[in-house]
Amino acid sequence: MVEKVKFKVFRYRPEDGGKGFYKEYEVPVKKGMTILDGLIYIKENIDPTLSVRYSCRMAICGSCGVRVNSLETLACHTQVLELKRRVIRVEPMRNYPLVKDLVTDMTPLFRKQKALMTWLIRQDNVEQENPTKQYLQSEEELERYLQFTYCIQCGLCYSACPVVSTFPDFYGPQPLMKAYRYYADSRDEGGEERVRLVDRFEGVWRCHFAGSCSAVCPKGVDPALAIQLLRRSALKG
């Protein structure tokens, strides 16, 4: 059965320089159709000027992050009929510079990730160049960081964070969670250096535990938990 649902989509053209506006589109919807399907329908049949970023369409790549009815979600991961609304408001993510319509510039997120050295740090450079052994981990050591590896870097948590909104220098949930992911990894040797990087005003101390990051994560990752654990490590020194 096909239903008509109104999509109220945020439109922004950088060349106009204005604040942006909402434009309404009527979209025929059937069971199983996602928000992304609706946006693609609009682009293909009603308004080809609409810009939306997407790739895999199966909640793997994390490209299609948007705000649907004031809540961050992946457009490909949200079914229209499950929302049980006749009007659906689709907006770009917050806390990122806007490129056009629903497309945001993710540079701040990746810049902060880089600043926190979110990669495995090892001291044995010779071994890394010419590996001769494996790095075994127990089940317990794996559990310590495994849940944080499910992050697909969609940036929804960064958009939902009220602290980033009020204090843009805050590293934000995803980069700090990523820092903890490597800090908790038994193979990593960057412990003290990592804690030094996050032990600052714009680091772990600025998180107020609003929990919105964990509430919106489409992969069930818990950045709020990672930040509190990182803060405990910073307190221990």
């Binding site: 849940q147 069930g220 990752v221 818990d222 405990r232």
Partner: peptide
């Protein structure tokens, strides 16, 4: 208490429809 890591859950594999350990 939460900032010191007390009263929070432990990191565990994400499961559908279960709240995150920090909640």
């Amino acid at each position: 208490l939460a900032h010191f890591g007390f009263s929070l859950g432990r990191p565990r594999r994400p499961e559908p429809f279960s709240p995150p350990p920090s909640f």
